[in-house]
Design a protein around this nucleic acid. Structure first.
Lengths: 131, 131
DNA sequence: ATTAAAGCTTGACTTAACTTTAAGTGTCTT
DNA sequence: AAGACACTTAAAGTTAAGTCAAGCTTTAAT
């Protein structure tokens, strides 16, 4: 089963521009083509794209993602680097989650603060203490 | 108690450039100055900066943060908008946390995958199934 | 009183991650 | 067969969020 770039864009919720850009930047290794030059995407290419989106979701810059992909392409000799990268990324993500949880409780406070302010019609009441 | 821009930069772990930039963009309302024009930061200004950092941590763009600050400056008439903004932000943050948790379990999988690959010296073993 | 460190402003520059444009070729639908 | 639409490359443009530089002033320490 293979897909056109437009199908992949729809499936992955990306623009076709972006997919071409990812390929150009070396983030999707070896996409095959038809004789006439059209890209034909296989499931393995979709897996790469999912990986990119996943790492991107952790704020990993594309150039670091590319470094990983280069390591992957290089083969078994880069297993230590790749392992190390995922260990570091795990720590980063764990910290991001903690950070967001702190932020969430701050936002929860603001929500109830403004809920009160909304009832009172003002932020200038006794119960309303912060901005 | 008041601080110079350099002190604030150190305290908040930002560059002085960034703080001036935030002021220029209207993210910190009414920083007072000495007669000679130096900025003097009060605790309320630090609170604003903390708020900016906090919202930024949720990937909120500076211009949306500015919108909030403008509402704040405008006064009680904008309480509904501000309430609404925090409600929306809460949902966004909750989703971000969920998303990161999914990503984390993916990364955990990769970590153990590469831990095995490291022992085996290769990714091409029976136990090692994915890229 | 000097002088180094820290501040000031304006405006240009940078980086990341796209996005658009231009100018054209290939494919599908009626 | 015609028109719409998807695809190509290369390069320029955009946006967000800073970052830096130049040239000058203020402040703190000796």
């Amino acid at each position: 089963m293979s897909y056109t770039i437009g199908e992949v864009a729809k499936k992955m919720n990306l623009s076709v521009h972006t997919i071409r850009y990812y390929e150009k930047e070396g983030l999707i290794p070896s996409i095959s083509r038809t004789k006439s030059g059209l890209r034909t995407f296989e499931d393995k290419d979709l897996e790469w794209i999912k990986l990119i989106e996943c790492l991107k979701a952790t704020n990993m810059p594309l150039k670091d993602i590319k470094t990983y992909i280069d390591w992957y392409v290089e083969g078994d000799s880069t297993i230590p680097q790749r392992y190390d990268m995922f260990l570091k990324r795990r720590e980063i993500v764990e910290n991001q989650i903690k950070e967001l949880q702190k932020t969430l409780s701050f936002i929860n406070f603001k929500c109830s603060y403004y809920e009160n302010a909304l009832k009172a019609g003002t932020t200038k009441t006794k119960e309303v203490l912060y901005k």
